[in-house]
Design a protein around this nucleic acid. Structure first.
Lengths: 105, 105
DNA sequence: TTTTACTGCAACTATTCGGTTGCAATACGC
DNA sequence: GCGTATTGCAACCGAATAGTTGCAGTAAAA
């Protein structure tokens, strides 16, 4: 996972409504119409969010008869998490190094 | 780290310019003015991004004489990464469970 | 003390984003 | 075949966002 693919993932995760959608999909696949019955926005708004989530690779369409269900994909999430953790550890390691040098003086 | 504090972190990470700033800070503390010499936006734009990053807890101001340097904090990043990984694993576990049930039929 | 460099605040602009309504197309159920 | 439910597309609107310029305040340096 490169940085170019990482940023859209975080952008997708940076909105409450999309977390609501992801949380709902955590209980199993659902179509935009079904999601619209429980969430306080219209089906079209949900469809847009699903497109964003799909482009980020966080969600996968599952055609089921005349409707299109969506499934939450955890793999992309864990991949992003790994990258995030690496970067965070690198920063803190640098901070610790600077602190160590400062205390030596 | 609760979901309410998690979403702003991802929103902050969902923009290229802010990643450029974070990458620059990864090489050590820097002020908005210094960052503006290398990045292709004005100091004021960088100052706004730094405020967003600070609110998300990703960055910390370090007053140094008449200037204000900023330091990248890895701790918030790793905390967010842990949460993300948990959620991703939970989703994939559910997917595997569904697949198992489907194969039993 | 005067100059200089750096920060902070405010106003303004253009674009993106989240959301809505309306309509066309299509595939299922009776 | 006919009605109905479901998706997809396009236009539109208001609010938020990313960016700019300009100016005032302030602290270091000469």
């Amino acid at each position: 996972m490169t940085a170019a693919t990482l940023v859209p993932v975080f952008a997708a995760l940076g909105h409450d409504t999309r977390w609501s959608i992801l949380a709902a999909l955590g209980n199993g696949e659902a179509s935009a119409s079904v999601l619209a019955t429980t969430l306080p926005v219209t089906r079209q708004a949900i469809a847009k969010h699903l497109a964003i989530l799909k482009d980020a690779g966080l969600v996968e369409p599952v055609p089921a008869g005349r409707e299109v269900r969506y499934r939450a994909l955890g793999s992309e999430l864990t991949a992003a998490a790994r990258r995030l953790e690496e970067i965070g550890i690198a920063w803190d390691r640098r901070l610790a190094e600077i602190k160590r040098i400062a205390e030596e003086l």
